[in-house]
Design a protein around this nucleic acid. Sequence first.
DNA 1: GCGTATTTGTACGTATGTATG
DNA 2: TCATACATACGTACAAATACG
Lengths: 266, 266
Amino acid sequence: MAVGSMKQGRKPAPRPARPPKRSAVVAGQIRASIIVQRLRPGDALPIERDMIAAYGVSRATIREALRELEVQGLIQLRTGPKGGPVVAASGAREAIQSIRNFCYFEAATIQDIYELRTMIEVQATRSVVGHVDAATFAELAELIEISARSAGDAQGRRRQREAEFAFHTVLAAASPNPLLSLMVEVLAGLLVSATARDSADHRLHGAWSEENCGFHGRIVEAVRVGDGDRAAALMRDHMENAHRHLQLIYGNLTLEDIALSPRDRP
Amino acid sequence: MAVGSMKQGRKPAPRPARPPKRSAVVAGQIRASIIVQRLRPGDALPIERDMIAAYGVSRATIREALRELEVQGLIQLRTGPKGGPVVAASGAREAIQSIRNFCYFEAATIQDIYELRTMIEVQATRSVVGHVDAATFAELAELIEISARSAGDAQGRRRQREAEFAFHTVLAAASPNPLLSLMVEVLAGLLVSATARDSADHRLHGAWSEENCGFHGRIVEAVRVGDGDRAAALMRDHMENAHRHLQLIYGNLTLEDIALSPRDRP
DNA sequence: GCGTATTTGTACGTATGTATG
DNA sequence: TCATACATACGTACAAATACG
């Protein structure tokens, strides 16, 4: 499956084809059994003792296999009677974590992220028109209100910035395309974690936050009246504005540089 | 970080906020130490024995933490002297696996995938212009040749189809934007694994494969002469063609349905 | 080429906390 | 409230793989 990629010449790719571990093999079998049996979130899997018997391996191996699936977000382990492994929901958080790790090593920049984010947010905005219910509109209004409210201390400002990002994930969650929702959440999460350190700095984000609120309000209005083209155009302006702002602050630093370096940039 | 998403009403989200496990905490500490120390792929981490002392937990707990990081593609564990945990490269494969799991639960369809894939492949194509070296051109030519060569048996046809997808990942790997490369690989991998069962069926893909080869050749030519607009337009046509073809075969089935159902579709 | 030391991989036993009924 | 069933965590032991003399 797509082995020939990432061949950048300087990477000899030290993959001596290590034999797969027992636990990895067992994990694959369990994964396959979930897919083939079409198990849905909440469905229970056999408990550890039965799996030990079924796969003929020790408890430690089974646990490693279950651990692998848990880390991937496929299952969740619960204690107590009637506990055991159950199929988990979505696994969005784990996908985000994986992509975040990838971005760390590949030295992704603000430019890289916004090249993707602009496309995806615009498309997501277009796709939600007609799919936003009243409860979601209320939630969006509340988030806009939080980010508009003036906050005195550092923690308040940080919560404002988080509400700004949450606006995007909540809006995109209404999209009928789960992949668009996921990507919006991934990219927003990436930016949140990278800029977390600076997010309370009023000198950096004060005036810009007000611009964002304006965009958010107008986007919601366009979505509410069903004007997909206008909503998409507004989101594009919003993204280009955000790109310019962050580019001005951080230049071509990588995400890790942004996350680690001190906040005393001009 | 973006907790409010995925609130689709019917999901009460049974998260009683279980206290985080020791191994998860330790994994986070190890992850943080990798980032803060700016370790690069290939750099070694302390061996298990030292970590047991450093974090004051048992070997099983350390192992679970290391396992978590290994599953996320952040580290790799090797046996023997001078072995131990080393920082791994990229973790693209693990990110793909995570997103694949997500798509399974969220019931993504061909339509959902191509809504994203069209945007991303077009943008990736535009971004590679001027960044493709001679070796990559040679590799692309070879992949086109493989997919053009007539293959008699089922395995040969399967390899043809894989070469068609590899074309996209190899081309995108030349992009200066690592996120675009990753997303191209993710989406192609998704389609490969979903359609693997049918990929040897000549009735389904015979004529279409020839069309794909034509597109691939013209895209490479446009990239070679530096015509980004033309390359992007060709890729858009290619994607819309592929979308139509797969939609015709599979309709609105989810990826898992495609992967599991028998191949005797009209 | 071969043994040996080092380090992970696998296995088993036991104690403890916690949720269910 | 109590008993039960399960995951979590610790300790120990041995097997397998690898680098190095």
